[in-house]
């Protein structure tokens, strides 16, 4: 495993990029730091969606796992006073991964629009419960207390910022490794021709199930990070269908080209939203929606393909 990672260019660039970002974060104004933090956290969920998308599946219900992750952190905090970042992350990923494991048995048989609709239904079931049940915070949700690391509660958010970057870098490298293995190569194979994969002797359902669990756990981690960064969870900004829509939006905007793309996409989305909101408080959705359409029409492989093109041109001109 280490051999693959050591020889991989993407991994090296990812680690380097995240390292630089972590250092640079210290010198950034708080609002930039916050936006980066939110964008990175969201990028984790997008990374999972990208793995699914490579098999041709788009889930319109990953807010389910995003929400489970966020609420796992909030509920553990409220009832047991859990504030340690590792415990929180493990809880969130465990809960999301477990639900993904269970629902995966059903979802792995579905494709295209049916897959999207059934995942939407599952996520809306959770939304329906969270909005109405007092014990789960109802429409107001909960606040989340400050995050600690092994008993130490840092004063600034910079520590959390670094923690998120470490989590993102780790996840990106692990997913990169996964995509390099036979299982990862199977991703494209399944999108191309399921029948052939079955006749080669591999269970398509199993492969998709595995990807689904990965994406669920990543979305859980993403939700947990978001809850910690915001200090607050509530159903409308964590579990409603619009959240799933946003995640899919970022996935398509980022493009399936690289494991770094989801994080770039997440950050771009966060800044796009902030600027659009500053520029036109009543028309930020218009700008976001317009961007989405423009990407689908003119940049079907996402922002990453644009970066790649620039890269190649630079390489050839110098």
């Amino acid at each position: 495993m280490l051999q693959i990672l050591r020889s991989d260019k993407t991994v090296r660039w990812t680690l380097f990029g995240f390292f630089v970002l972590a250092i640079a974060g210290n010198f950034m104004p708080t609002w930039v730091q916050n936006n980066l933090m939110f964008g990175m956290a969201r990028g984790l969920a997008v990374l999972g969606l990208m793995v699914l998308w490579r098999t041709g599946l788009i889930s319109f219900g990953h807010a389910l796992y995003f929400g489970i992750g966020a609420y796992a952190v909030a509920l553990a905090d409220k009832h047991f006073g859990v504030s340690d970042i590792f415990v929180r992350l493990i809880l969130a990923m465990g809960a999301a991964g477990f639900v993904g494991l269970c629902l995966g048995f059903i979802l792995r048989k579905y494709r295209s629009i049916f897959f999207a609709m059934l995942s939407l239904a599952f996520s809306m079931v959770l939304y329906g419960v969270l909005v109405k049940v007092e014990a789960l915070g109802s429409t107001d949700g909960f606040s989340v207390s400050a995050t600690s690391i092994l008993g130490w509660t840092p004063e600034s958010k910079y520590t959390l910022f670094c923690a998120i970057i470490v989590a993102c870098a780790t996840s990106a490298c692990m997913v990169q490794y996964y995509l390099k293995t036979g299982l990862g190569a199977l991703t494209t194979a399944i999108r191309d021709n399921e029948l052939r994969v079955e006749y080669l002797g591999y269970s398509v359902a199993k492969a998709i199930h595995f990807k689904y669990i990965i994406s669920a756990a990543l979305a859980g981690a993403s939700g947990a990070m978001m809850a910690m960064a915001l200090g607050q969870v509530d159903p409308d900004s964590m579990v409603n269908w619009t959240v799933s829509g946003e995640l899919v939006f970022i996935t398509v905007m980022a493009g399936p080209g690289s494991v770094i793309a989801p994080f770039i996409g997440g950050v771009v989305f966060e800044f796009l939203r902030t600027y659009a909101f500053e520029l036109a408080p009543h028309a930020w959705q218009l700008i976001v929606g317009g961007t989405l359409l423009a990407i689908i029409f003119f940049l079907p492989m996402g922002l990453w393909s644009l970066l790649e093109r620039i890269w190649v041109r630079k390489g050839s001109s110098s």
């Binding site: 693959i4 293995t181 036979g182 199977l186 080669l200 002797g201």
Partner: peptide, 12 residues
């Protein structure tokens, strides 16, 4: 896929 009953899938 054919090799080692799929164990080869875990490496490149």
């Amino acid at each position: 896929i054919a090799k080692d009953e799929g164990k080869a899938m875990l490496s490149s």
